[in-house]
Design a protein around this nucleic acid. Structure first.
Length: 426
DNA sequence: TTAGGGTTAG
């Protein structure tokens, strides 16, 4: 990216000079088409092209070009370039364009500068629902959901009526907080707008809020009322049942989806457009359900089906679910061989799952292996040594326990702790 | 041609 400001200064210095006519390929309207299309396929290219244009002629770019480049910076979290684009918005006198302001807010949210998001927001003279929603969304994205809900309230106090998007973001804040009362309040506001029940993103957010807040009964009611569901709808409900220990409901729902797909594919003679193809996230729910219900064989079958039938490449999360499944059933050796056979490097969470289960089932040998792996990964916690030490104690392996104690004192620096004084922010 | 939206184990 070139130095925007330098270029801008040069532009203003030569402002009194006669207008230069540019060849067609340097006219903003044509260039904007390219900037816009790169934004979808390769946002970095949008930034590079924009930068290239500035090098040639500053008047080759207009407010639309800036909009696209700001969006590209947001997508790729390019803070330096995004701030330079902001400077250019100011220098070129595009500040009154509200579309640019909300995009700038989005860009600052993407680079985790919530203070800057708020500064941009404060300077917008006539804030509409989109500006407010961008602000709320910035707080949610940056793990400040409590503040997001507060701002949602403020928005209404300023007589700005929430629309579907504002409600969706507000619900995701409530979900994030696990705040059922707040979520129900938002639900009540939504109910006053019957036409909003047609918005699938909003209904999915509502469903997800009930799932995250632990009200599965209400989540199911929302699920049943969604006429045309998508993969996210099914996923939220399948995961919802699974995390709340309703493994049978979760798996029944998954089977229902598979049946529905079979029916649709036989009707549509092979076209797969309308099929709700299970994705990787959905399988996390399915595997979790198996794990909670101790269904090892089913879990193995689903794991294979995910790879072979659905062509989904398992991620660390899927391997983690499988290790969890074996461990919960006490199949520690199987869990260990599964970990060794993994095509990707197991993380600390996986080894800690094995360590925890080794404690439950009293397998000192595997506990020691898991603990040493955690050291190798430089991810061990004091609790890991304590877990192993407890296993040695339970099995009467006093020598090992003393050795471990010695190692612990050699390795660890004396502990220190801290407490936060003052207001606790969520 | 211009803005803000949701699913993920332990």
């Amino acid at each position: 990216m070139i130095r925007f400001l330098h270029k801008v200064a040069k532009h203003f210095a030569s402002a009194a000079q006669p207008q230069i006519h540019f060849p067609n390929h340097l006219k903003p309207a044509r260039i904007n088409l390219s900037l816009k299309s790169y934004l979808k396929s390769n946002p970095i290219k949008t930034v590079l092209l924009f930068s290239d244009l500035l090098m040639k002629k500053i008047s080759a770019v207009d407010s639309y070009s800036l909009l696209y480049v700001i969006k590209a910076c947001a997508k790729k979290s390019l803070g330096t370039e995004g701030k330079q684009a902001h400077a250019l918005v100011i220098k070129l006198g595009y500040e009154p364009i509200i579309f640019l302001q909300t995009s700038l807010m989005d860009m600052y949210a993407a680079i985790a500068s919530v203070t800057d998001v708020h500064k941009v927001f404060d300077e917008i003279p006539n804030k509409n629902v989109v500006c407010w929603t961008s602000l709320i969304s910035a707080y949610v994205q940056n793990q400040k959901s409590y503040r997001a809900v507060e701002i949602f309230r403020q928005m209404q106090l300023h007589n700005v009526e929430p629309d579907q998007v504002a409600f969706t973001v507000a619900l995701s804040a409530c979900a994030d907080l696990g705040a059922l009362d707040k979520g129900e309040w938002v639900h009540d506001l939504i109910s006053r707008k019957p036409e909003f029940s047609e918005d699938l993103s909003l209904m999915n957010a509502l469903l997800n809020m009930y799932v995250k807040c632990g009200d599965i009964r209400k989540a199911k009611l929302v699920f049943d009322n969604i006429r045309i569901k998508d993969v996210r709808t099914w996923t939220s409900m399948i995961v919802g049942h699974a995390v709340h220990g309703q493994a049978e409901d979760s798996l029944r729902l998954f089977s229902a989806l598979e049946e529905e797909n079979k029916l649709r594919s036989s009707k549509s003679r092979g076209t797969t457009d309308e099929l709700l193809v299970p994705n990787d996230v959905m399988f996390i729910g399915v595997l979790m359900a198996c794990s909670h219900a101790g269904m090892v064989e089913e879990g193995k079958r689903y794991f294979r089906s995910m790879i072979e039938e659905y062509g989904i490449k398992p991620r660390l999360s899927h391997f983690g679910c499988m290790v969890d499944l074996f461990c919960r059933c006490g199949l520690l050796k199987e869990a260990y061989s599964f970990i060794l056979a993994m095509p990707i490097q197991p993380n600390a969470v996986i080894w800690r799952t094995l360590l925890g289960a080794s404690g439950v089932y009293g397998n000192g040998e595997l506990a020691a292996v898991a603990r040493s792996k955690l050291y190798e990964l430089n991810a061990s916690l004091v609790g890991d040594d304590v877990a192993l030490s407890n296993i040695y104690a339970a099995k009467g392996m006093w020598e090992e326990k003393i050795m471990l104690r010695h190692e612990m004192t050699q390795r660890r620096t004396p502990g220190c702790s801290s407490v936060e004084v003052g207001k606790l922010h969520s």
